[in-house]
C-alpha cells in the first residue's frame, strides 16, 4: 500500500507487533522521524519503546552533561563515570538506543529548542518535549503548527508518582474499526496555548486535579525563573499563593486543587521509575497510533497518579465554553 514492502528481516523481528497493528502500520512506522528533547526517566522509557517498535529515526536533544542526577530512573546511562564524563545526556543515550535496534537511525542534535526555526521542525513527523518550560512548549508547538506538513506534537512531564501528557495532532483524520467496518474519523485538537488557557469555571468538577495543579507549577517555575523540577518544600508558600491567584482569576474555589497534591509535585523531584514506565509506555503507544493512523488517539491530556492508580484521559478544549 505504502510502496516498499517490509524486508524479511523486518518481518521476522517485528513479527509479534505486526500481529497487533498490521504490516501497513509497521511500514508507516519505519518511515517516521521523531524528535525528542529532554531525556529523563520517562523520556528514556519512551525512546526505548519507539526504537524497539522500529520507527525510521530518532533525534535526541539534551545538552546537559551527565551527572549523578541524570542517572536517576534512566537506564540508558550506565553509571560509569569514566564512560560518561564530559558527554551530554543525549550522546550517551544515543549510544544505548542504537544498540536496542540496529534498524533505527538514532542521532544527536545540539542546541536550544527555543532558538530553532520552522525549517528545523519540518524534518520530523513527531516532536516530543520532555520537561520543557511553558515558554518552550508554546514556542515549539507554534512552529509545528506553522508547517504545511502535520507534525504531531507531544509534551510529557513526570513529578513524584504523577505524570502528564499533552497531545496536539491539529486536524487529524484516522481510521477506526467500528464493528465490522473501518470508518474514517476526524478530530480537531487545540494548541498547547489554547489548551492551557481554557477558563477553569466551566471545566467539569470531576476533571483530573492534576490538570490544574500542573498549571500552577508551570506558572510558579516560569515566574520564579526555575528550571524544571528545581523546587522544594520551601517553595510551598509561594506555590500556594500562585494557586490562590489562579483560582481567583478563574472564579473557582481554592478547594479545586488540593494543597497536598501541590506539595507532592514540588517535593517529589526525583522521578518514580514505575510511573516513568507507565507514562513512557502510554506516550509511545500514542505516538505509534498517530504515526500509523490507526485507533483513537488520546485527546488531549493524559494523567497518571500513582496514589489512586488511575490513568485518565481529559479533553480540555474550548468545547466547555461554547
Amino acid at each position: 500500500m505504502d510502496g516498499e514492502e517490509l524486508t524479511e528481516q523486518e518481518t521476522a523481528l517485528y513479527d509479534r507487533q505486526i500481529r497487533v497493528w498490521g504490516a501497513n502500520a509497521q511500514r508507516r512506522l519505519t518511515k517516521a522521524h521523531i524528535l525528542v528533547s529532554g531525556i529523563k526517566g520517562t523520556v528514556a522509557e519512551f525512546c526505548k519503546n519507539i526504537v524497539l517498535a522500529g520507527v525510521g529515526s530518532v533525534t535526541l536533544m539534551d545538552d546537559r552533561l551527565v551527572n549523578e542526577e541524570a542517572l536517576n530512573a534512566n537506564f540508558l546511562i550506565l553509571p560509569d563515570e569514566n564512560a560518561y564524563s564530559g558527554k551530554t545526556v543525549a550522546e550517551i543515550c544515543c549510544e544505548s538506543l542504537k544498540d536496542f535496534n540496529p534498524m533505527v537511525r538514532v542521532s544527536v542534535e545540539k542546541g536550544d529548542l527555543s532558538t530553532l526555526g520552522t525549517n528545523f521542525f519540518e524534518q520530523f513527523d513527531v516532536v516530543v518535549i520532555g520537561y520543557g518550560s511553558r515558554a518552550t512548549k508554546k514556542y515549539v508547538n507554534e512552529k509545528c503548527r506553522k508547517l504545511v506538513k502535520r507534525v504531531a506534537f507531544y509534551t510529557v512531564d513526570c513529578r513524584d508518582s504523577c505524570g502528564e501528557i499533552f497531545v496536539d495532532l491539529q486536524d487529524y483524520k484516522y481510521m477506526k474499526k467500528k464493528l465490522e467496518e473501518t470508518v474514517e474519523c476526524e478530530l480537531n485538537f487545540p494548541s498547547f496555548q489554547e489548551a492551557i488557557s481554557v477558563p477553569w469555571k466551566p471545566i467539569p468538577r470531576r476533571t483530573a486535579k492534576l490538570y490544574f495543579a500542573m498549571r500552577v507549577i508551570e506558572v510558579f517555575e516560569e515566574s520564579e525563573g526555575r528550571k524544571h523540577g528545581e523546587c522544594s518544600l520551601l517553595d510551598l508558600a509561594r506555590v500556594l499563593e500562585i494557586k490562590k491567584q489562579l483560582c481567583e482569576a478563574n472564579s473557582v474555589s481554592e478547594s479545586h486543587i488540593p494543597d497536598s497534591l501541590l506539595e507532592r509535585l514540588i517535593t517529589g523531584t526525583t522521578e518514580f521509575p514505575p510511573a516513568c514506565a507507565i507514562v513512557g509506555g502510554i506516550l509511545a503507544q500514542e505516538v505509534i497510533k498517530a504515526v500509523s493512523g490507526k485507533g483513537d488517539p488520546l485527546k488531549n491530556f493524559f494523567y497518571y497518579d500513582g496514589e489512586d492508580g488511575k490513568g485518565v484521559m481529559e479533553d480540555i478544549s474550548n468545547s466547555f465554553t461554547s
Binding site: D15, R16, Q17, R19, V20, W21, E45, K48, N49, L52, A53, P273, P274, A275, C276, A277, I278, G280, G281, I282, A284, Q285, I288
Partner: peptide, 14 residues
C-alpha cells in the same frame, strides 16, 4: 502466537 508489544509490557511492569 499471542500478540505482543513493548509498550503494554512496560506499563504492566510499572
Amino acid at each position: 502466537i499471542v500478540h505482543a508489544v513493548a509498550t503494554t509490557n512496560a506499563i504492566i511492569a510499572g
